[in-house]
């Protein structure tokens, strides 16, 4: 943090606030890794019917 009288650069507030850092870390990771990953895994398509038909002959 800057000493009194000096102007504190804005980015200093950003990088020195533990809660803000925790928030950024959690959000990016939760959205791009966990959420995106879980969404993809839960939306996998089944094996197409015509493929199954061609193999099983039915």
């Amino acid at each position: 943090m800057a000493k009194e009288g000096e102007k504190t650069p804005f980015w200093l507030y950003v990088i020195e606030d533990p809660m803000l850092l925790l928030f950024m870390g959690v959000t990016i990771y939760a959205v791009f890794y966990l959420l995106w990953g879980v969404m993809e895994l839960s939306n996998l398509p089944p094996i197409p019917e015509d493929l199954k038909k061609s193999i099983l002959g039915r």
């Binding site: 850092l21 870390g25 990016i28 791009f32 890794y33 995106w36 990953g37 895994l41």
Partner: peptide
């Protein structure tokens, strides 16, 4: 590090089925 490093976990599933 705090921002970017955690998603790197994805490199454990690069040769896996599932995610695109």
């Amino acid at each position: 590090y705090i921002i970017g490093i955690n998603v790197a976990s994805a490199h454990h599933i690069l040769s896996d089925p599932g995610v695109g």
